[in-house]
Write a protein that binds this DNA or RNA. Structure first.
Length: 687
DNA sequence: TTTAGGG
DNA sequence: CCCTAAA
């Protein structure tokens, strides 16, 4: 008997906006220095990359909630689990709805400790003596003011260009400085442990506690489906925390097309602010209790679970990746951006927000919102630059404030046996996420959907500071295919620090051959479908190629968010054609089990009764429509006819393929006979 | 809504 | 998987 499986589709990981970068450029913080070392240009972006990398390295605290990202009804399911997660997954934890499997979104949360650089080791969040973690899940629709502000020097001079300063205004009031980060410390945390979880102290917990929803808007709580995974390693920005911060503030905001929820609560804002400065903080291990919540959106009345196969291998044995080693086959899609012109003024009072609702365009590419602030007066600090300032260079110093509310990661697809423990699921997810993101990240910059590849261009040159031209600015997080390769210089190396450490994390799946060797060491998960392999494997983090036009579909895309006003002025013609259309469903390759089931049904019912086949074999699998089954059969027949060498994807047992051919021919004959019976005259005429 | 096929 | 003409 086939074991029932649970199927989790990850349709996007949402990472919160990038924490505010290290403050002063004058303070030569390691992180900044690294950034600078890597590239003299667009430091801010590199900085983002670095910060992001650190986040993903577990140097910062984070929760990785997984949120179901689908339309339709939602059903929350909260699971609780002890450390080892002996709890088994239950049907209700699975997806039940729609044509899609449940999808989980990873969201970066954060754990915060009270101010102060010193954090107790292994101090759990529950520990009274230590501040409870604060998890914040930001949404592109959040309206709070937490922002990642980066002042960029738009000075023409390249060297000056990279000297960016972070605007600390509005953040952690009272904060004046932060502890100098010590990169080396973080290294220690990664001392060659082969395992991500243990090595980094990643830990995930489930919570069934209703309290979990505290701080979450009812709407969100009720509709949100998420799993939060947390890294046990926290990076505490000393002095970055506001003393007033509420502990245990958990804010979950859906980044949903339908409902933009709110994380407007005051506490939220503070919390959201917390993650900032991650880049330059010491790392401390911490047993943070996290919540792991899985809720599923369910279509009315449908509570069937998916019948997908789940494959889980213990971490010890390692996760095996589908041989195809295929990364999620994201199709290249264009990005459309809402564009809008913001008027801006001189300070943050007026912020232009752009909103891009582009998920329809490519769900694998997560949109994220970024608020771009207007040019702000700089230098003397009092003078203000008017938007659309011409390309004035050295003469005037302009700053661009950027607010990145969240990054989203491509979806992952995971299958787990129903009997797998929650703990194992967490580990699996963790592995997958880490594998995907831990390999290093690159940051891409998109302006109006076009990727800016020339790192040597200034913001001004790129049009990023031209309000009249900057209609949409987006960032992408891209797995760094070259993170393994040795950087050009040791300094550059530092940028990849996290990835250069003895990596517990499996390498970026996009790496192929050369990576195989390492895989045995750090088995990758079987989650497969990480990211679409990319032909574009830039040798260095900083892309120097000026290649244009090519869209890096595997990238995590950060797209601008817009204020209502901004949206209002968005030219309708620029709206994505697809943005308002239904999203393309995520690809869910048929498992052998499903094929088996399909074949069996078709053998019985024939090839012209797909509805019946569906009812018979996939009645409880919402995401398999009869059309899907029909299509699958079509491809199966094709597959059976081609040579094994030409086949791709998970290999289907020859035995099944034989049955496919047999059934196909048999039912084809039957069909022919039927037609003869019904229209003998026609047949005769034809003869 | 289902089928059947092309894309 | 999507899109659709046809039934």
């Amino acid at each position: 008997m086939l074991q029932k499986r649970l199927d989790y589709g990850f349709s996007g990981y949402q990472v919160p906006f990038i924490p505010r970068a290290a403050r002063s450029s004058r303070k030569r913080r390691p992180i900044r220095e690294k950034v600078v070392a890597v590239d003299n240009q667009l430091c801010a972006f590199d900085l983002l990359a670095t910060v992001a990398g650190k986040l993903l390295e577990g140097e910062s605290s984070q929760n990785l909630p997984i949120e179901k990202d689908q339309l339709g009804d939602i059903q929350d399911v909260v699971m609780q689990e002890q450390d080892e997660g002996t709890l088994c997954l239950k049907d209700e934890h699975c997806t039940k709805g729609g044509n899609e499997v449940a999808s989980l979104n990873l969201e970066l949360g954060l754990q915060v400790h009270d101010q102060g650089c010193d954090v107790k080791e292994n101090s759990g969040p529950q520990n009274d003596s230590s501040p409870a973690p604060v998890s914040v899940i930001t949404s592109s629709h959040c309206t709070e003011k937490d922002e990642f502000l980066v002042k960029m020097d738009t000075n023409d001079d390249k060297s000056d260009f990279c000297s960016l300063s972070r605007n600390t205004e509005g953040f952690a009031p009272g904060h004046t400085d932060s502890c100098a980060p010590n990169v080396n410390e973080s290294v220690e945390e990664h001392d060659g442990k082969g395992e991500v979880l243990s090595g980094n102290g990643l830990d995930m917990h489930c919570s069934e506690d209703p309290e979990f929803f505290d701080g979450i808007s009812p709407a969100v709580a009720s509709s949100d489906c998420s799993i939060k995974l947390s890294l046990g390693v926290d990076h505490y920005p000393c002095g970055s925390l506001s003393p007033r911060r509420d502990n245990n503030v958990k804010v979950v905001t859906r980044d949903d097309d339908e409902n933009s929820s709110e994380c407007t609560q005051p506490s939220t804002m503070k919390a959201a602010r917390l993650p900032a400065r991650i880049g330059d903080r010491r790392i401390r291990k911490l047993l943070a209790s996290k919540h792991w919540r899985l809720a599923s959106k369910v279509k009315d009345g449908d509570h069937s679970d998916t019948g997908l196969r789940c494959i889980y291998r213990s971490r010890r044995t390692g996760y095996k990746r589908p041989r195809s080693q295929r990364i999620y086959p994201f199709k290249k899609r264009k990005f459309y951006h809402y564009s809008s012109l913001l008027n801006s003024d001189v300070d943050d009072g007026c912020k232009g927000v752009y909103d891009v609702l582009d998920r329809a365009i490519d769900q694998t590419v997560c949109s994220f919102s970024a608020v771009r602030n207007r040019v702000v007066a700089s230098g003397n600090g009092s003078s203000s630059c008017v938007a659309g300032q011409s390309t004035s260079f050295a003469s005037r110093e302009s700053h661009v404030k950027l607010r990145i509310k969240s990054f989203r990661v491509p979806e992952l697809f995971i299958e787990m046996p129903e009997t797998a423990t929650v703990g194992s699921l967490k580990r699996t997810v963790m592995e997958a996420v880490t594998a995907l993101l831990g390999g290093g990240l690159r940051v891409g910059v998109r302006l109006q959907g076009k990727k800016i590849r020339d790192d040597n261009r200034t913001l001004v040159q790129s049009g990023i500071c031209h309000d009249d031209k900057v209609e949409s600015l987006g960032f992408t997080l891209e797995p760094n295919p070259s993170h393994i390769s040795t950087p050009v210089s040791s300094e550059d190396n530092s940028l990849l620090l996290s990835t250069d450490l003895p990596q517990p994390v499996s390498r970026c799946p996009t790496l192929s051959a050369n990576n195989q060797g390492a895989s045995h060491h750090h088995p990758v998960t079987n989650l497969g479908n990480f990211v679409e392999s990319d032909h574009d494997s830039a040798p260095s983090p900083a892309e120097i190629t000026a290649e244009k036009g090519s869209v890096d579909s595997r990238a995590l895309v950060a797209l601008p968010e817009g204020t209502p006003q901004a949206l209002a002025v968005v030219p309708s013609h620029q709206k994505s054609k697809r943005s308002e259309m239904a999203q393309r469903r995520i690809r869910r390759p048929f498992s052998v089990t499903e094929v088996e089931s399909l074949v069996q049904a078709v053998e019985k019912l024939g090839t012209g009764r797909w509805r019946d086949v569906k009812l018979r074999a996939f009645d409880n699998v919402k995401h398999r429509t009869y059309v899907d089954l029909k299509d699958k059969w079509k491809t199966l027949v094709h597959t059976a006819r081609i040579s094994p060498q030409q086949r791709r994807g998970e290999p289907v047992p020859q035995e099944l393929l034989d049955r496919v051919l047999a059934a196909h021919s048999y039912w084809s004959q039957q069909q022919a006979k039927q037609q003869l019976k019904q229209q003998p005259s026609d047949a005769c005429l034809l003869l």
